[in-house]
């Protein structure tokens, strides 16, 4: 594995919706798409159930980036979950920006079940970008 940034291996948590993105992750597997192991998938029923506290907790507990993966807008199995997720992601990023924290460690990707390669590409991209950003200062400070 390519190592940069003094061997820094980012830790990333991905909350993947059961219907689209988690399914795409499986498809990436059946087609043997290779991507770095840095993202830990957590399957949830819908991107709309991802409470910001999960993301903040992740970023404060050692994650260098977080990702929410859902169905494309308009395609939600539960009609509108991803629209609600989109608002929450926008809000959380906005709060991070206001506080001068790294909003760009918070990722959203809409990946449908047939987009296995896109899932692999997203993990590669997020891993690479996070590698460039270096360790998440929020997760390295014991006093936070």
């Amino acid at each position: 594995m390519a190592e940069g940034n003094n061997g820094f291996e980012p830790k990333i948590i991905g909350f993947l919706c059961n219907w689209c993105t988690a399914s795409a992750a499986d498809l990436a597997g059946t087609t043997r798409a290779q991507y770095p192991p840095n993202l830990h998938p957590v399957r949830v029923m819908c991107s709309g159930t991802v409470d910001p506290v999960y993301l903040i907790k992740s970023l404060l507990s050692g994650a260098d980036a977080v990702m929410v993966g859902g169905c494309h807008p308009g395609d939600c199995h539960y009609v509108s979950g991803n629209y609600k997720a989109r608002r929450r992601m926008a809000m959380l990023q906005n709060i991070f920006e206001s506080l001068g924290l790294d909003a760009n460690r918070i990722w959203t990707r809409w990946i449908s079940a047939s987009e296995g390669p896109e899932f692999a590409a997203a993990v590669r991209e997020i891993t690479e970008e996070t590698r460039k950003q270096g360790p998440n200062p929020l997760s390295t400070d014991w006093a936070l």
Partner: peptide, 27 residues
């Protein structure tokens, strides 16, 4: 959790509390 971090602030989750509260009522 403390073992993983080497040292962990107690009570825990102070910043988590404030940031989460912001997501609840910033609007």
């Amino acid at each position: 959790a403390a073992e993983k971090r080497g040292a962990m602030r107690m009570p825990t989750d102070t910043l988590l509390f404030h940031l989460t509260r912001m997501t609840h009522m910033a609007a």
